[in-house]
Design a protein around this nucleic acid. Structure first.
Lengths: 204, 204
DNA sequence: GAACAATGTTAACAATGTCAACATTAAAGA
DNA sequence: TCTTTAATGTTGACATTGTTAACATTGTTC
């Protein structure tokens, strides 16, 4: 277990900060946000109860880092879906990228609700620099591309991120809490929502 | 203080359950979700540390009730805004009702972010019956009215709740965390979002 | 190689969730 | 009315956790 190793010596772990965040992600994903504790995390990682305090000011800062890591996972999932698209028509490609990015966002909310929860819970108290690539950044790239390909207006380019993110984020949040019925229903609902996003952007 | 009184006798509080929920709302609103504790709540309410256990199975169940109470507050705010509308044209009235309901929802997220947070945090573990009137119910009433007035299609009546709620809920959540800049900007953004909802519903 | 910074450990305290045992009151049935 | 019982509240106790202080070990720098 990489989370258990202490390298290079037995005393110094070597990558404790990263291990703690990784263990935090695992813990939150499998047992929920409330189960996150500095002590248990330290022990699982193979160090003493208070070792984490050498890397995080307090529990809130640790949570903020796990939150950021969750958003990074989400960002990677979005990029992975975008990379998998097979489409030669540049216009269709631009639209497909927005669609897949949004669908990946929704899938993340459905499949990993606990990570989605911590990803977007008030995490700005301990100030963090925006991760790269962030979901917000990816969305803006998609809209940039749509604008370059003349598929949306300048005004829509300006308001689009707000509209698209609100809709997708809102649905993902509701779906992650099973507000929207079964998974099968949610799949269909996701299509409705994504189609509605495209309509809102008034794609030409 | 109603939360402190023990009636009718000194031993029995009389309305402890309601007092605890009310105190919980206050506590969450002013000091955040994490500050909620059974012990402190009991003491604030004027009873012993463990009195709350006669009314709530555990902390999670107490949270679920505070969550439900928060949604009820939101529902009342939406209804209050709807009731304040002065509009004689039935069609304009129906549209205004949806607008005001959505705007109240967004305002709730902005002005009372801590209540908004607990209102829509995974609260379904301890099963609860839907409160009355729920935000979801109010939204559906608005769409019913739009449909009766022939302002939206049957299909939109079906998909509308999902679309409208996703958009408004998503934006409210983002706004409650100041993702969208200053309050002034948020006011403008709210208009953009609500206009986008109306466009998505393809009002005739 | 010595001084210093970084990292990890141990011990301790307060706050909290929770349970068990007990006390008091209200409610219901004789 | 009186007794029994359920509902409600209290006290004491224990485990877990966040957090700090004091101390120990290791890596780094001059």
């Amino acid at each position: 277990m990489s989370t258990l190793k202490k390298s290079p010596t037995e005393f110094h772990h070597g990558e404790l900060r990263e291990s703690l965040i990784t263990a935090g992600i695992k813990q939150v994903e499998s047992h929920g946000l409330n189960s996150l504790s500095l002590r248990q995390l330290s022990i699982v990682t193979g160090v003493s109860q208070t070792a984490a305090y050498r890397h995080f000011e307090d529990l809130e800062h640790l949570k903020a880092e796990v939150s950021k890591a969750s958003r990074e996972i989400l960002g990677k999932m979005m990029l992975a879906r975008i990379a998998r698209i097979d489409e030669s028509d540049p216009r269709k490609l631009a639209i497909a990228r927005l669609w897949e990015a949004g669908d990946a966002y929704i899938e993340f909310g459905m499949r990993r609700p606990n990570l989605f929860e911590i990803a977007f819970i008030s995490y700005d108290s301990p100030k963090l620099k925006p991760e790269d690539p962030s979901p917000w950044g990816i969305l803006n790239s998609c809209l940039d591309e749509l604008y370059e390909k003349k598929l949306i207006s300048a005004e829509t380019r300006k308001d689009g991120p707000l509209i698209a993110w609100s809709m997708v984020h809102g649905f993902a949040g509701l779906a992650s809490q099973r507000f929207t019925g079964t998974v099968r229903e949610t799949k269909l609902s996701a299509e409705i929502v994504l189609n509605s996003v495209l309509r809102s952007l008034k794609i030409r």
